[in-house]
Design a protein around this nucleic acid. Structure first.
Length: 401
DNA sequence: AGTCCACAGGAAGGGCAGGCGA
DNA sequence: TCGCCTGCCCTTCCTGTGGACT
């Protein structure tokens, strides 16, 4: 594009009518005034947390439901409202909301405690202190609060699976040592069988109350999406059937409202970029592709270098054959390492990297026993050729292959 | 019934970087 | 500066295992 073209493109961009009235309304972090199809859960959570307004400590609550069923949204909504009322009535109430899955933020016990202390006003360095010192700082910050502190831990299952449930045990016991502060915990989990990972003492004290969030069905999703689209898009930009299509696709993904919103927002962006008059169903198909591609490629990009090399090996090996075993991956990976002059890792580590890639949903690896011929994982890749070639390019660029 | 393959995957610990307090 | 602590990546060592083969 020549420079004058670039300028005219930019000025066109300014003049162009955008499809969006309020793009935030189409993101998952946005909390709408009226939340649809979750009245029961809102009432439940509100009545459990309400005692905080009288200075009593509310029961600990455990919230279950799969991705995109409104758990975080409802928790944020209810706690926001609670906080507003408490403020108006000048009650001592502090709300702390932490997402435990945020990388480098709260994915270890140390980081969680540091983050909790930080939100209560005591800045703790991101590393360097002994964990019990961080715990003490957090404890002191709590004691200074006085009144009720509600700690909402989102995606708590991810943290417990990673570091165990001991920190939860300590958290649930913290009330015994506090004098003027009362702590109540709201645990939010995507995994319905999550409590199996926990010690029974932690389980019973943490799930004094439980709220289940069922998946949305296609009709509910459509209403939710309609509501958000009315707020997010200008009038008449959506062609008939687009909302239904997004809801139907998201309903297949276990009733995931997050996916529905992503689909319609990205479809809007794609339509806008292609200078089309309206958002049509084809844009939704392309949005579906783009979301999946971005997810996979971004995940791969953030992997350590050896993980990339292992994936590259697997991609190449599965080109001629559908499945490959761990041992074969390892020998080809070693060869690749020699070619690109990188010192290779052990088989144990590569085995671990393969599990990680499997958990990230980039490859499929199933343990299979071949009798006399041993036990191994059969590894296959189920990605579109488009995504595969993007990953290859990414790795080749990095290692000058 | 027993053997044995080719790994899976747990446990422990080393080494390094980042960062604190003295 | 030094000693210490944590997280992270990795290695070493180890035990476990489903089912074809003997």
């Amino acid at each position: 594009m020549s420079q004058s073209n670039l300028q005219s493109m930019f000025s066109n961009y300014i003049d162009q009518d955008t499809f969006f009235k309020n793009k935030d309304a189409l993101t998952t972090n946005w909390v709408p005034d009226n939340i649809l199809h979750r009245d029961e859960q809102i009432d439940d959570l509100a009545s459990i947390l309400a005692p905080a307004l009288r200075g009593d400590d509310p029961s600990n609550v455990f919230i279950y439901g799969s991705v995109g069923t409104g758990k975080s949204l409802i928790t944020r909504h209810v706690t926001n409202e609670l906080h507003t009322v408490a403020k108006n009535e000048s009650k001592d109430l502090e709300i702390v909301y932490i997402n435990c899955k945020m990388k480098k933020v709260a994915d270890t016990e140390y980081r969680l405690l540091a983050k909790l202390a930080g939100q209560l006003g005591d800045d703790v360095p991101s590393t360097g202190l002994p964990t019990d010192e961080v715990y003490n700082r957090f404890f002191e910050a709590l004691q200074e609060q006085k009144g009720v502190v509600i700690i909402a831990l989102d995606e708590i299952d991810a943290l417990v699976k990673k570091v165990g449930d001991e920190f939860l045990y300590n958290l649930t016991r913290i009330n015994d040592d506090l004098e003027e502060t009362k702590v109540s915990i709201v645990g939010i989990s995507n995994d319905l069988n999550f409590t199996e990972y926990m010690d029974s003492r932690v389980k019973s004290s943490l799930s004094e109350e439980e709220i289940i969030f069922p998946p949305y069905n296609a009709i509910e999703l459509r209403e939710i999406l309609k509501d958000r689209a009315d707020k997010g898009f200008r009038e008449d930009v959506l062609k008939d059937g687009v909302i239904s299509k997004c809801s139907a696709l998201a309903a297949q993904e276990h009733g995931d409202a997050r996916r529905a919103l992503d689909l319609i927002r990205v479809a809007g962006e794609l339509a806008e970029r292609s200078e089309s008059e309206q958002i049509v169903k084809q844009h939704v198909d392309r949005a579906q592709d783009k979301i999946e591609r971005d997810r996979v490629v971004e995940t791969v990009r953030s992997q350590p270098k050896h993980s990339k090399l292992v994936l590259y090996t697997i991609l190449n090996a599965t080109e001629d054959e559908n499945e490959i075993a761990t041992g074969d991956v390892y020998s080809e990976y070693k060869e690749l390492c020699q070619n690109v002059e990188v010192s290779e890792l052990t088989q144990r580590r590569v085995s671990g990297l393969i599990s990680e890639l499997d958990m990230l949903g980039i490859i499929n690896a199933n343990v299979k026993s071949k009798g006399r011929h041993g036990r191994t994982r059969e590894i296959s890749v189920d990605l579109s050729s488009n995504i595969k070639s993007q990953i290859r390019e990414l790795v080749e660029e990095k290692f000058y292959i």
